[in-house]
Nucleic acid binder design. Structure first.
Length: 429
DNA sequence: CTGGGGACGGGGCCC
DNA sequence: TGGGCCCCGTCCCCA
């Protein structure tokens, strides 16, 4: 004899206990905000917590505390509400960060649902495309943003399913036998007023996504020491799974060009599934998508910093590591090979004019052009030409990498902290 | 508070 | 069509 309401009732009770802080034995600190929860519930819901709490299982008498900075309190609220209710409040704005957080917390079902949610957006793009194809009015919607509501679906009760499954074709799904009664899919017209992120918001969003997660346990600190700026720009640990999502999105995007028939010559456009941004070329969309996914496939072989775009890496390399700017860093005057020298500071290099060099009392370093040319990304072996130095460069990069701390000419450094601690690693992460 | 340096996203051009 | 490169504008961090 099975009482079908028992599970939901039990979860409801647990949620009630959480809200009233009854029997809560775990505190989660997210950007300063404290969430109370039950260890056993977290253990059962998240692979991450399972691992974390397993490590702490010997100290069950002590309350467990975890600290996160990888996502916002709002995002964790969504996650925690889901854990205790089975209801995931996804919107066009939070889906990326929720997916990122779920990825970090190893909640595969949530990831799948986020994926479905995004895929739904792609389906919308398809409908949108159809709509545009059917348009003959030139004035109709020149920017492709205005559009009517598509759907606002709700999960139907389905209490008997014992296994996780998704039925993306219907846009509905069930997690762990617990159906969703609330799926906050914003109608497109509503999202139009909310979803388009300003550059500032997008940047903040990407910053949130890329923040390192920090645990109170010393063993759980980030793999290497990093400055604030590094933390802002480096990948979160969810990078790999994000790449998988990206692959899916990439695959889906192949089929979602949007045509705008309002011009005499029909122009094919590609619409971003995450925002209202429209680009002319698929390659541009691929590039743009990285600003949503946080994917950074181009590592700098000198300092390990990763970039979402090759040209940014290239620019970074030239600016930071090749001292390409013919400007004295101290007096800002234009310098040439005759009037100035390259100075090395960790993996960073810049130029000083002879006068400033004399003031500081240092010499430039010997340079090995041949060796430096070998310094390229292992994953981009066919792109080595971009690492070629200009003729005035003759210092060995390999030398810097192998013996970075020994040959420092200047040690004033603000970023040497990260550089001296960090090994130069090829393409790991 | 401000200016400079660097990162980053978008757009466009060339091959 | 995609990759590479360059330019521009914006934002953030830091001195």
């Amino acid at each position: 004899m099975e009482i079908s309401t028992h599970q939901s009732h039990l979860l409801q009770q647990l949620n009630e206990q959480r809200r009233q802080d009854v029997f809560c034995d775990c505190s989660i600190l997210v950007e300063g905000k404290v969430f109370k929860a039950h260890r056993n519930v977290l253990f059962a819901s998240s692979g991450y917590f399972k691992m974390l709490l397993s490590q702490n299982s010997k100290e069950t008498s002590q309350p467990t505390t975890a600290t996160f900075q990888a996502f916002s309190p709002d995002t964790f609220t969504v996650i925690l509400d889901f854990v205790y209710s089975g209801k995931l409040s996804l919107t066009g704005q939070n889906v990326i960060e929720v997916m990122s957080a779920a990825s970090f917390l190893q909640m595969t079902d949530v990831i799948s649902v986020c994926k479905t949610f995004i895929k739904s957006s792609l389906d919308i793009s398809e409908k949108e495309k159809d709509r545009y194809f059917s348009l003959s009015d030139k004035d109709a919607n020149s920017n492709g943003i205005e559009r009517s509501s598509f759907y606002s679906s709700g999960w139907q009760e389905e209490s008997s399913s014992p296994h996780s499954h998704l039925s993306s074709d219907q846009g509905t799904g069930v997690i762990s036998g617990k159906s969703w009664s609330k799926y906050n899919y914003h109608p497109a017209s509503q999202r139009n007023t909310q979803q388009p992120l300003t550059k500032h918001e997008q940047r903040k969003d990407s910053i949130k996504k890329s923040k390192h997660l920090r645990l109170s346990q010393p063993s759980e600190v980030a793999p290497y020491k990093s400055s604030k700026r590094e933390a802002r720009t480096s990948d979160s640990s969810s990078h790999i799974s994000q790449s998988e999502e990206q692959a899916q999105i990439d695959a889906d995007m192949d089929s979602t060009p949007v045509s705008y028939p309002y011009d005499d010559l029909p122009r094919m456009r590609f619409k971003c599934p995450y925002c209202t941004h429209v680009v002319k070329r698929k390659a541009d969309l691929k590039r743009h998508l990285r600003c949503h996914t946080g994917e950074r496939p181009y590592p700098c072989q000198a300092c390990g910093k990763r970039f979402s775009r090759l040209d940014h890496l290239s620019s970074h390399f030239r600016t930071i590591h090749q001292a390409c700017k013919l400007i004295c860093r101290k007096c800002k005057r234009h310098v040439t090979d005759l009037t100035g020298q390259v100075v090395q500071e960790g993996t960073r290099r810049y130029r000083l004019c002879n006068e400033c060099l004399a003031e500081v009392g240092i010499d430039s370093l010997p340079i090995d052009l041949e060796a430096e040319q070998h310094l390229m990304s292992p994953s981009d072996g066919d792109k080595d030409s971009r690492w070629h130095l200009s003729e005035d460069e003759n210092r060995s990069y390999v030398e810097i990498v192998e013996d970075g701390s020994a040959d420092l000419v200047i040690q004033q450094v603000d970023d040497s902290e990260e550089e001296e601690e960090k090994e130069i690693k090829p393409n790991i992460r």
